[in-house]
Nucleic acid binder design. Structure first.
Lengths: 226, 226
DNA sequence: TAGATTGTTAATCGATTAACAATC
DNA sequence: TAGATTGTTAATCGATTAACAATC
């Protein structure tokens, strides 16, 4: 259906547009121009128009964009016009936190199963969903449609479990383990590498402290990009 | 100290290099060429050499790179050769999960305080650190050096708390709230927007399902980039 | 020394920004 | 209609890749 390949850079920006439009909608803003949105989001108006036009003309000359319409359309592009069943594998702190995160349901992501290897967690209930032993995974997936598997388990276990999950026919993995999963090309993997995010923060912090050191000020006081 | 501005794209790749080098080190690999590393990481050897040369010549012609040396040097670049005290503001599921995350300590990030507004959480201990009421924040920061504040609190509260935190002199924020914090330019903000990550996953999943639909196969069966 | 592989310059590719005609 | 703002083409900018001389 898509005419030409959409660049990854564009796709990565879509959820942020969606978030801003959602906020505008909350504030009962009916229409917005690319210029005004660009000022709020701190990007260029040109980029907004280019990005949106990858998917079609959602605006109107002389008027701008209807907030509600654009919000809905971007939602459709992002695949938020349907429901997803997700299972969480690894019921440690992070897995439990994500299981408890009701916000995802508002967007159509429903946790339907939670799995772990630790027998002490068996049967513990999170928002009405009992933690199961991972041995039950195969049976569960065969009886319940699962669209996304969330991996919140130790680095050394993740690749093997990912393989099993893919073997059961699951096509999308949200990976929180600090490792790259090498899976067949038809499997979608989205990584959340918290440690890497924290390292970028410490890099920036270090760089800004270096810039503040009095004797180096003159040498490199150009502004840092965001 | 830095000669020219390092591009954001390069900085974002550094933690991944660091992770791969750490794995090689674990496996007692002593040296590696850009070519071999490029095959493991699925990037070009050229990119690796370009990236590293932003920071200096870490390799040796005809030999490659010494894994341990390169690992250490990238660690220094990322600011991992020192310790950071971090406080967590918002002791909900995610805040507690991060507080429990011992992995960060290995990299030098120490949780020294946890804060919330919910009186029912007051005094609950996580790894020996008692959850405090947010009213104590100012006093705490004045008596204890804090390098990084982690915001794991609701979207609507985050901007105000961020402002307060910055007012207390904290220069770096790891923001998990789904909102952009508009803070002075000398404050470092690293965002982790989980909902946006999940939306990218659903976009990719949708796109791959569209590609699999039999009648559209011919129209767009080019390979999707990663 | 010969072979390997870096560091670095030059060429290519892709993404962002600017500009403006089309049009509401 | 006049003014505003999009959709889209063209120009610019920056990042990636290729190539190879330097050198271990």
């Amino acid at each position: 259906m898509q005419e030409k390949e959409i660049s990854l850079a564009v796709i990565k920006r879509l959820p942020r547009y969606y978030r801003y439009l959602g906020e505008l909608l909350e504030n009962d803003v009916v229409r917005i121009s690319s210029k005004e949105l660009s000022e709020r989001m701190k990007v260029t108006a040109s980029q907004i128009r280019q990005d949106l036009n990858n998917f079609g003309g959602f605006g109107q000359q002389g008027y701008g964009y209807n907030v509600e319409y654009l919000y809905t359309e971007i939602g459709k592009i992002l695949g938020l016009d349907r429901k997803y069943n997700i299972i969480i594998i690894g019921a440690g702190n992070l897995g439990q936190a994500l299981s408890n995160y009701t916000d995802f349901e508002r967007r159509g992501f429903y946790v339907t199963g939670i799995f772990d290897t630790n027998p002490r967690l068996e049967g513990i209930s999170i928002r009405g969903i009992e933690i199961q032993m991972i041995e039950n995974l195969e049976k569960f997936v065969k009886n319940n449609p699962v669209h996304i598997a969330v991996l919140t388990l130790p680095r050394l276990k993740a690749p093997q479990v990912a393989k099993e999950v893919v073997g059961l026919g699951i096509k999308a993995i949200w990976n929180f383990a600090p490792v790259d999963l090498n899976l067949p090309p038809d499997v979608i993997v989205e990584n959340v590498h918290l440690a890497e995010s924290l390292m970028r923060l410490s890099y920036d912090l270090k760089a800004s402290e270096d810039n503040t050191k009095p004797f180096e000020k003159e040498a490199d006081n150009k502004n840092k990009g965001n």
